[in-house]
Amino acid sequence: MAVTLTEAAARHVTRYLAKRGRGVGVRLGVKTTGCSGMAYKLEYADDVAPEDHVFEGHGVKVLIDPKSLPYLEGTQLDFVREGLNEGFRFNNPNEKDRCGCGESFRI
């Protein structure tokens, strides 16, 4: 299974990288934290590490480290605006539960 991103997410990343003046895409991963055990990490990436798994969609690269990949298989990265709020949304089919505050999830 691949990790994908929507057109909205790709547009947002492309605009931000252009404004930033550098970068090859986004690095997506997971870390142990929060009420439910895991949280998403997302950062802009300036280079591709040799061990990274690289997925590409709509001209944007999504880089994932080998330890995070099993938790992120099949995830779709989206960028949404709801009222005055905007941000990335992780549509992960592996999620079994999410904490009440929305900060962490369980596989």
Results as ranks from 00 to 15, higher is better:
Cys35Trp: 12
Val80Gly: 02
Arg106Pro: 04
Lys19Val: 02
Arg106Leu: 13
Phe90Cys: 08
Val60Tyr: 08
Met1Cys: 10
Pro50Ser: 11
Gly100Asp: 10
Val80Tyr: 03
Val80Cys: 04
Gly100Thr: 10
Pro70Glu: 13
Gln76Glu: 15
Arg27Gln: 11
Lys61His: 06
Met38Lys: 15
Pro66Arg: 05
Leu72Ile: 10
Phe90Met: 12
Ser68Gly: 10
Cys35Ser: 13
Pro70Gln: 08
Arg15Ser: 11
Cys99Gln: 06
Leu69Val: 08
Arg81Cys: 07
Lys61Leu: 01
Val3Phe: 09
Lys19Tyr: 12
Cys99Ile: 06
Ala10Cys: 09
Gly102Arg: 12
Gly23Leu: 02
His12Val: 06
Ala39Tyr: 00
Glu86Trp: 03
Val48Gly: 00
Glu51Ser: 13
Asn91Phe: 11
Lys61Ile: 01
Gly21Arg: 08
Asn92Thr: 07
Met1Asp: 12
Arg98Trp: 10
Phe79Ser: 04
Ser68Arg: 00
Pro70Tyr: 12
Asp52Glu: 07
Glu103Cys: 13
Cys99Pro: 09
Arg20His: 06
Arg27Ser: 11
Ala18Leu: 09
Ala10Glu: 10
Glu95Pro: 00
Tyr44Asp: 02
Glu7Gln: 15
Val13Ile: 15
Val60Ser: 01
Gly34Tyr: 03
Val24His: 04
Ile64Asn: 00
Gly83Phe: 00
Ala2Glu: 13
Asn92Arg: 07
Gly100Tyr: 10
Gly23Lys: 01
Asp65Ile: 04
Glu73Ala: 14
Arg106Glu: 14
Arg15Phe: 06
Phe88Ser: 03
Glu82Trp: 05
